[in-house]
Design a protein around this nucleic acid. Sequence first.
DNA 1: GACTGTGAATCGATTCACAGCG
DNA 2: CGCTGTGAATCGATTCACAGTC
Lengths: 230, 230
Amino acid sequence: MTIPSATISRLVTYLRILEQLETEEVARTNSHDLAERAQVNAFQVRKDLAYFGRFGTRGMGYTVPVLKRELMRVLGLTQRWRVIIVGMGRLGQAIANYPVGSDYQFEYVGLFDVNPALIGQRHQGLTIQPMDELHEFMKTHQVDMGFLAVPPEKAQAAAQALAEAGVRGILNFAPTVLQPRLIATENGDEISEEWHNVTIENVDFLAGMKRLAFYLLNPNQKNDQPEDNT
Amino acid sequence: MTIPSATISRLVTYLRILEQLETEEVARTNSHDLAERAQVNAFQVRKDLAYFGRFGTRGMGYTVPVLKRELMRVLGLTQRWRVIIVGMGRLGQAIANYPVGSDYQFEYVGLFDVNPALIGQRHQGLTIQPMDELHEFMKTHQVDMGFLAVPPEKAQAAAQALAEAGVRGILNFAPTVLQPRLIATENGDEISEEWHNVTIENVDFLAGMKRLAFYLLNPNQKNDQPEDNT
DNA sequence: GACTGTGAATCGATTCACAGCG
DNA sequence: CGCTGTGAATCGATTCACAGTC
């Protein structure tokens, strides 16, 4: 069965709400309460959860720690994710230093850049390495995802370098659509092969501000959609 | 007529592609070319554009500068948007210093924070001001949108402060769902009034990394959706 | 009695097929 | 002939209504 991507975005929201409720030592909740906090409706909450199992008790609602654990499992947040950041300019630095809070399941294991002025700088106990060393690095380290924080004109090449080095997931901060194919091979032949198994998720602040401009200009177009993405 | 929010996200993408084509001095394009670059299909491109007018020539395609100008107009990027940033920690600083490139239609006019250690610091020719001064500031300056880059637990209060000060659009970087109502009034009564006319757009990097974790764990769930947002 | 879980119904967005036009 | 623009068809997601059960 194929799950709407909007559902995945909402699950992240529900999980946050549950974490919040847990710190407030609230023991139970229900679809209406979750719906209100997540700004969706209760049918949606129940349908979203139903894709993955039965987590509640009829007549009772949901037990906060139980549902929280289940959502963490569903979203893959019970395992550790090893992350490298490619592009350690101001944006990459802000990402590296962002307080991830309860999100200790994500661990930065490497920082890369091409700029000699940045190489050797340390952030969060890691030293920025030259991009050339990525291949070598991948031989000795497990890397689950790469955060791409390079300027837009370098994003496509950097994404390909990540893919070729064996990184399977890319969180793309650059304001570009990454093309899922190789443009050329090393020897210059134009083989144009598909990327295999690279999952891309976009986080795009410039797009967000432009969408906001549109909605301010067109107040009748009410805006609902999930995440900031592409 | 109500326009899908996914269409707005895609228009931003098309505009970027057109800007790119313009720098490459490509004079014309067509729906198939745009579709390939935007990773959507040609029907989608034409339908998206059709919501706003007829910008092409049958048999010919689109003239790059013409379509670019039309999309800028549609998205509200022919006018200037005056922006304040609320929350000038590392994330706010990265945003303030991000090279917006061709996006000179967005202008930062004020920077705010509650942290005395940050107040007085300068970025991009602006001095960080205390949050208290927002109301006063709004009396003498036009502000079209606020970028909210405060820690999640402070986001709701800060958003309300922005709304009460008269800011009509918020780009929310905090990993929280902003509740569109006022929780209390100044005198302590609980009036719980609706926000009026505040448009919110989310940019959520932590959500992006969690969605990516899900898709890496479930490779059969192919991911298409637009923008990063909540 | 209250609230979940879910098939059926509705609604909306994407895709299609083709008419229209340079 | 090529490519846009668009009504109709399809597909998918959200909403609904209610059966199930604690």
